[in-house]
Design a protein around this nucleic acid. Structure first.
Lengths: 209, 209
DNA sequence: ATAAAAATCACATCAAAGGGTGATTGACAA
DNA sequence: TTGTCAATCACCCTTTGATGTGATTTTTAT
């Protein structure tokens, strides 16, 4: 968390690019290190500056913004990339997130909100324009739910089993659930008893039947 | 989009519940129709008021908040539910979103931000606290290491992996293949390297696509 | 033929998993 | 009221798993 956030802009439209640069450099705590008109240019420029944040347009001449994000996150996973684009095209949203972008704002966002979003990004958040966030969230929504399959495990045990089967370490489960590792072990012992298994892998295979 | 947003609170802690009610009723454009201490109470109260928004705690006596969301969205899909809870437990987040919640804020959120989130919710957004949004977004991120799809395991490594994924202990694999346990270790070390994993369970999950 | 890759084994070390026993608390039901 | 059960935590201890750093032998490909 630097006191001044260093930023690189990737945007082919000169007016937008310079507008953003002026906004950023005119704001306390934000510094635009470079403003690139193409993805290729950005990939040459980034190693020189190592910015905290990259603002990325999608429609670019040559390599597009999403491919550029893949390159950036491959080489410098610590850099936070925020997509900044005109449309809320569903496909582009998910391709961007898959590529490793952690923010997605529309260009119509007011300047103050944009700066706030950048700040949120470096503070571990994932700023998204409202309609974007809604689309992302709705990919999880299931129209109806089927009642849980018959099992003698308690709700807590089921919960812990689900972490177990995702490969979490005991201490990771403990941290996630805010309980002691001893409690995790106790639960797992009971789960193993009930499932008649002796190891994590057997339990996993059992619940995949 | 009503000019005044009508809201029902579901929260068992009286202090928090009344605090929220006062915040909402003290703010222009927001109206708290009811504040329920339990999910059951909420399900009785909602048909009477038909609120725009429900603020839902998760840890409730009796039916929990997530189950309550399922009931609500089943009966009144147009109602927007925002989870309001203390912890950013990953499992609860995704269960809530799957259940149909479209917002997820932590209780530590400052009052002004909370009102803004409610407003965003009825305007088609999905407000989430920063760390929540990041977790949601990161479920899409693929570790962009392409050299994974084709794992060049040798025949022997494949063989050992198959025992591994059936839950065999190292010494059982060794006995089965008439080799030393040290050799088993060595193979597994190479398998893990190639699959880019660190544990048996991760390897198993990786094999299962 | 010889260099590279695969398969084998050893030792050391640390982290993680699993088993046993026991104890406390709160919820709920007989 | 009492007893059961779920959930929590604390010790003890042993086994298993994972990693590092070697080495030797066999196969395989150039």
């Amino acid at each position: 968390m630097p006191e001044t956030i260093s930023i690189i802009i990737v945007e082919d439209d000169e007016a937008v690019r310079e507008g953003l640069r002026m906004l950023i450099n005119g704001s306390e705590g934000y510094h635009c290190q470079a403003a690139c008109p193409s993805a290729e240019d950005a990939l040459r420029t980034i190693p020189e500056f190592r910015p905290d944040v990259v603002l990325m347009d999608i429609n670019l001449p040559g390599m597009n913004g999403i491919e550029c994000v893949i390159c950036i996150k491959n080489a410098w996973p610590e850099i936070q990339v925020m997509m900044l684009t005109v449309f809320d095209n569903t496909d582009e949203i998910f391709k961007s997130l898959t590529a490793g972008a952690t923010g997605y704002m529309l260009k119509k966002t007011p300047p103050a909100k944009l700066l706030e979003a950048i700040s949120e990004l470096v503070n571990g958040g994932s700023p998204m324009s409202g309609e974007i966030a809604r689309k992302v969230v709705q990919t999880f929504a299931r129209p109806v739910k089927h009642p849980l399959p018959e099992s003698n495990l308690t709700a807590r045990e089921e919960e812990i089993l689900s972490y177990l089967s995702k490969g979490f370490l005991y201490k990771e489960i403990a941290a996630e659930l805010f309980i002691s590792i001893e409690t995790v072990r106790t639960h797992i012992r009971k789960i193993y008893q009930k499932l008649q298994v002796r190891t994590r892998t057997e339990a996993l295979l059992r619940c995949m039947k």
